[in-house]
């Protein structure tokens, strides 16, 4: 519906107020709501693939590779898809990278306004960041103008570990292992097998090894992934995001696959 009352009761496409019924500054900004439809995001353009996250003894670990694809083209190979928010939280994003950049902007603004305007001694933890993000995502899907992302939010505050998911529909859930995109099919079973029941005993190096292994399997099977990744570790000491790391891979087995290696017959 047309939300500008000054446009009501006028013939369609009548953008010019011939009888000057209203002074210009009283008219709605959008004079052409009846003549042109607004375009909304209907598909993601530059995309990031899976994000993986697990709980371990001291906190949360989140991993993502650094590729931003343009369709099947590996367009940007060094994009950081893990974003720290405040002192206790990291958000990992798959899906549309421009929508993710917009969310980073929103979240940075949120943290600044909480620090400066509120100054009440309270700070946002991962649970609050996740609730805020899920409300933003749900509001945008309800306007049929979604932010095309699947996000993992992880962190530690007041000795409590937090790990949860939210996507373009506003669907949320929490578990000790989470994976978005292709990772939900390929990595999630590996993560569950390695982590479930061991959330309180896994050490940091063990958790890192589990994620690296899952990323490697994804690199072997997901055509939109790359062998370059970052891992965020959030513990009681705060959030730390690693530099860009290289995955160790071995392709020796490929020689034995017919159609890939040298043909012997």
């Amino acid at each position: 519906m047309d939300h500008f009352p000054t446009n009501w009761g006028r013939p369609k496409y009548d953008n010019f107020d011939t009888s000057a019924t209203y002074p210009l500054h009283n008219r709605g900004q959008n004079q052409s709501t009846t003549s042109g439809a607004t375009q909304h995001t209907q598909q993601p353009i530059v995309t990031g693939t899976s994000v993986l996250a697990i709980k371990f003894k001291d906190g949360i670990m989140i991993a993502a590779d650094t590729l931003a694809s343009y369709g099947s083209l590996a367009r940007f190979k060094g994009v950081q898809r893990l974003h720290p928010v405040g002192d206790y939280t990291v958000v990992g994003a798959s899906g549309d990278m421009s929508d993710f950049q917009y969310l980073q902007h929103i979240l940075d603004g949120l943290v600044i306004s909480e620090e400066t305007t509120a100054q009440d001694g309270h700070t946002l933890g991962p649970a609050e960041i996740h609730e805020y993000l899920s409300q933003v995502m749900y509001a945008r899907r309800s306007k049929m103008n979604p932010l095309w992302n699947s996000l993992l939010v992880g962190g530690v505050k007041d000795g409590q570990r937090f790990l949860a998911y939210v996507d373009l529909l506003g669907v949320t859930y929490s578990a000790s292992t989470l994976a978005t995109g292709y990772g939900a099919y390929i990595a999630q079973p590996l993560l569950r097998k390695a982590v479930e029941g061991r959330e309180n005993t896994l050490t940091e190096p063990e958790a890192r090894a589990i994620l690296e292994n899952a990323l490697r399997v994804l690199f072997y099977r997901d055509a939109r992934s790359i062998n370059q990744y970052q891992i965020a570790t959030i513990t009681a000491n705060g959030a730390e995001i690693s530099a860009s790391l290289k995955l160790e891979t071995s392709w020796g087995f490929a020689e034995g696959i017919r159609g890939y290696g040298a043909q012997t017959q």
Binding site: Y138, R141, Y165, G170, V171, T172, Y173, S174, A175, Y185
Partner: peptide, 30 residues
């Protein structure tokens, strides 16, 4: 795909009312 093994669908509203919601989870929670 199983998203999670624990996402409650039943919620206590008052001392004598309990609501169960099923369908699209985002709408249900909202």
């Amino acid at each position: 795909s199983i998203q999670t093994r624990y996402a409650p669908k039943v919620f206590r509203l008052t001392d004598r009312a309990v609501l169960a919601v099923n369908g699209f989870a985002a709408d249900g929670n909202m």
